[in-house]
């Protein structure tokens, strides 16, 4: 009896602890949405639709991991989506110039990493506010993408890329596997390595981190570089998905990347959060959009729904103070 009581007690304590709801808001939200949409439309949980949702969330998931690293250091990267656009155009140009798929992927990755590194150096060494630096990078990266592409989509035809975007094992698409692999790696880096602890410490208190000799400048540069590199990888998946490299602004990706991180319980003040939370946040946003479309809800209600969900999640984090 005492054992069960203590289990019950522990569950009660856990459920009444506000931090529990902050950490698990995105998961709870996702479960609620799944239940709701499944009740309203049985096709929601069909294998085809699950596969579709995972496919649609892969790119966002990768961007969200990068954004999470930056926000964990109390920064923000407003340029993720534009850097992805820029990297996509670089990828498209490399492909059309006959660089071959592997080299082109490397070009995309390096393009993203380079912009990220520049962001990091400007934020950490230049001591310019992250908001301003990445806002500038947002504009500069989209502008460069427009210039390089002359404002036109670059059609990329490649059998392996098509296979990458279309193939799956069961209901799990290859692209989502890549996203998941990145997420797992990110989790390990954040919680199992020295670097990860230093990221959390830098975000939690720059003064404390510096007092113990952590090179916070390097940590900051590193997280922006990570964010940029992941945007480069996302760019490859984006091109694979639509079959062309588009100089489009992709603003929805930017907003959703920040929203997913907040949904996932990462503090915008840095130092606290996880990788799994934001990933579930990304899945939640994808499921929300998918479910509303599936139910035939008018286009005008979708942004409203996203807004309500994001602010609702932010409200939960209020209790965490």
């Amino acid at each position: 009896m005492t054992a069960t009581e203590s289990v019950g007690e522990r569950v009660r304590v856990t459920l009444t602890r506000p931090t529990f709801w902050v950490e698990w808001a995105s998961v709870v939200g996702l479960v609620l949405l799944v239940v709701l949409f499944t009740a309203l439309d049985s096709t929601f949980l069909s294998a085809g639709n699950i596969r579709g949702m995972l496919l649609a969330s892969a790119i966002l998931t990768i961007l969200v991991v990068g954004q999470a690293f930056v926000i964990l250091t109390a920064g923000i990267d407003l340029s993720v989506a534009s850097v992805m656009t820029f990297a996509a155009v670089m990828f498209g140009l490399a492909m059309t110039h006959g660089y071959g798929i592997l080299l082109s992927c490397l070009v995309a990755f390096c393009a993203g990493a380079a912009v990220g590194l520049l962001n990091g150096v400007l934020v950490a060494k230049g001591r310019i506010t992250d908001f301003i630096v990445t806002l500038g990078a947002l504009s500069a990266a989209s502008g460069t993408a427009l210039i390089l592409s002359d404002g036109k989509p670059i059609t990329v035809i490649s059998a392996p890329l098509f296979e990458l975007s279309a193939g799956s094992v069961g209901v799990v698409p290859y692209t989502f596997m890549i996203a998941l692999l990145i997420a797992v790696l990110a989790h390990v880096v954040l919680f199992k390595t020295k670097f990860g602890t230093h990221v959390l410490a830098t975000g939690g208190s720059v003064e404390a981190a510096q007092a113990t000799g952590i090179r916070t400048t390097r940590i900051k540069i590193a997280v922006y570089a990570i964010s940029g590199s992941l945007a480069g990888i996302a760019a490859i998946l984006l091109v694979a998905r639509v079959g062309s490299a588009e100089p489009a602004a992709n603003m929805t990706f930017l907003l959703n990347s920040v929203a997913a991180v907040v949904l996932g319980g990462v503090s915008l003040f840095g130092g606290k959060g996880s990788i799994k939370g934001p990933i579930f946040g990304a899945l939640l946003l994808t499921a929300l959009s998918n479910g509303l479309t599936l139910l035939g809800v008018s286009q005008f209600y979708q942004p409203l729904a996203v807004g309500v969900v994001v602010v609702g999640a932010a409200f939960l984090t209020r209790f965490d103070k």
Binding site: V242, T252, S289, T293, L294
Partner: peptide, 13 residues
């Protein structure tokens, strides 16, 4: 990309 995702969902419904 957005159009493609939306169209996929619509086709499923």
């Amino acid at each position: 990309q957005e159009a493609q995702t939306q169209a996929e969902t619509i086709l499923r419904a």
